[in-house]
Structure formats: C-alpha cells, structure tokens
Simulated assay, not measured.
Amino acid sequence: MPQKIILDVDTGIDDSLAILYLLASDDAEIIGIAATAGNVDGAQVAANTLAMLDLGRAPEIEVALGAAAPLAVPLRTTEDTHGPQGLGYAELPVSARTLSSRSAAELWVDLVRAHPGEVTGLCTGPLTNLALALRIEPELPRLLNRLVIMGGAFNHPGNTTPTNEWNIHVDPEAAKEVFDAFSAAPQDRRPLVCALDITESIEMLPDHLAALAQAAHSAPIEQVGAGDPPEFRSAASNPIIRYLTDAVRFYFDFHYQYDLGYLAHMHDPFAAAVALDPASATTRPATVDVELAGTITRATTVADWAGMWGREPNADIVIGTNPAAFFERLVTRVGALARRLYPEQS
C-alpha cells in the first residue's frame, strides 16, 4: 500500500524536486500539502506548489496556506538561492487550482486525526505550521506514523550562519517546539532528521540532468555548464525536463558562485526518499534541542549523542546513505513520470 504523506514545503527548487519525486513514486500518496513561508513568502510558496502539481499532472491534492511569518521573528526569504519566484530560471503558468479553506495547521491536525498511525509527515521547510498544529493537537507525535525533517546541522558547518541550517534559522522557536513535543513520540516513531551533515553529500551534477532527459526520452540531451549565460533557457521537448533544467541550473549557478562547484545539494528530494524508504539511510539516535538565546549561535541545532542531558532521544539523525543509489532512483522515477505524462514530447 502507498504511504500516506503530508508534505510541508516552502517550495523552492529542491522542494519542487521532492514534489516530483513523490508524484513519481508508486509507494507514495500525497494526502495534503502545507505551504510554509521560507524560501519565498507564503503566497508564492502556495502558487509554486499548485503550479508543480499542474506540471506533474497530479490529481486534486489539498494545498493549505500556512502562517505568513515565523512564530517570533520576521520572515527571512532567500531569493538569491532559489530565484525571484523561488523556481530558479523556470517560469510556470499560474495554476487554476484553488487553495484549501482551512489553514495549514488545521490540515495537519484534521488529516492525521482522520488516519491515526497511518500518516508520514515530511517537512522540507521551516517548522512553523507543524508547531502551530502541535498547539492544536499535542498528540500528533503519537498519532503520526513517522515524521521526517529536512533541517539542522550537527557535526557540520551551517549554510546560513557558521552553525545554522536555513530551515531552522527561519523559525528556530518553531523547531524547538517540534523537537520538544516529539520527545513524547514512541521510540519507533522518533523523527528522522536529514541534516546538512548528510544532505550536502547529495550532490546533483549536470550529468544527472542529462540522465533525466535520457530517461524521459526528451530531446535534445542538454549539457549545462558554468559558462551558460543567465538568459539561457532549455529547449528540451519534455516539459518536466525543461522545467528541471531551468530550475536546477539556477541552483548550480548559486553553488558555483560560492565556490562549492558546479553542482546542487538536493536536500529535499533526499528527505522524500528517506520518508518512503527509511532503510536507505543509516541513523543514530540523539536528543536534539535548538539554541534560542545564543548571541552568535541562535538557531543552532544541538545533538546530545551521549545522553549528557539525561533526556531520552527525541530524534534519529541520518548519518549515512548511498548518494549514487539515491540519484539512480530519482532519475528512474522522475524520468519515467516525465515520459508517461508527456508521451507526445518524448
């Protein structure tokens, strides 16, 4: 049976790949999507999410708009990383789909209550909506089947400050509320945390885009590179490949600008893969907390691996995986989806 997934996203480039990965996976059933302000503002996140569902020719999936701002601080967005609309160089038509009449927090609570023990929550953005949902229904840690979080940095430098990962940085109060609440989760339902320690090893390269085009039977097979001007746009025959090329190329350019190589860290689709197949990752239990008072370390995730705090573990942190196997699954699944949905362009 497919896993029921609630997806909580701040749809930028890698979130959009996570959406496509789930739509391409027979073992996933997205039952609702919460749009969280983060990479771009909440309204743009919602618009991007609806447009991605159109591109993926998805059935009707409820998309609910979340809080406009974090719990305690002003919203910070990152158009420099994800582009002015959050999807890199890509531009998608405005969707005719409509947003839910309920809030993202209400969507979380109602869907999990309706399917106790059956739902996997996947958060690839700030944890604002989930924190608000926990205030409505404190039993969520026991009602969910599992929670997967892309966020944090432990034995690894941050990507926003020297110690901070972006999603936690945007709303550290929400992250702390979530980790504190999930201290009540049973051992087999502790959150799976995909932090920068592992997600920065998930390096997408131009060859992966070419492999996706080949898998989709899209033409021409384009080989993008650091010399491509910003105005370059893909001529791929398949709309999904065309979108991916234009979106991910912006992400390549961003990483290249910061001397990380002509590549892109695919944090969010990796978290989606872990949500569907936890056995694809090696994990280690720890007690996770979030620093809120530090002058230069605010929003840092701290893991007590050795039990020094005398508190039970509240997370299973991913410490190992096989990036090549992940990309093989991504190319196979998304390539097949693109080929199936757009056979006339394949």
Score class of each variant (00 low, 15 high):
V94F: 09
V94G: 12
A96N: 07
R97Q: 13
R97V: 08
R97I: 13
S100V: 04
S101F: 09
S101V: 09
S101L: 12
A104S: 13
A104M: 07
A105Y: 03
E106R: 12
E106P: 06
L107T: 02
L107E: 00
L107G: 03
W108G: 01
L111S: 05
L111W: 01
V112L: 06
V112S: 00
V112W: 02
R113W: 02
R113C: 11
H115I: 02
H115P: 02
H115D: 08
P116H: 08
V119N: 05
L122A: 01
C123A: 11
P126D: 02
T128H: 06
L130F: 10
L134V: 03
R135I: 00
I136Q: 15
P138V: 13
E139H: 13
P141H: 05
P141T: 04
L143Y: 08
L143D: 06
L144A: 05
L144P: 02
N145C: 09
L147F: 10
I149E: 00
I149Q: 02
I149G: 03
M150V: 09
M150E: 14
G151V: 05
G151H: 04
A153K: 08
F154R: 00
N155L: 13
H156P: 03
G158D: 11
G158R: 12
T160N: 10
T161G: 09
N164P: 04
W166S: 12
W166Y: 11
N167G: 00
V170I: 14
D171M: 00
E173S: 10
E173H: 09
A174I: 06
A174V: 07
A175T: 06
K176Q: 13
E177H: 06
E177V: 05
E177I: 05
F179L: 10
D180S: 13
S183T: 12
A184N: 10
Q187K: 10
R189V: 11
R189L: 08
R190I: 01
P191Q: 07
P191G: 05
L192F: 10
C194S: 11
A195C: 12
A195P: 00
A195F: 04
D197V: 07
I198L: 15
I198M: 15
T199N: 11
E200M: 12
E200A: 04
S201L: 14
S201R: 14
E203R: 15
E203A: 11
D207R: 15
D207E: 14
H208L: 10
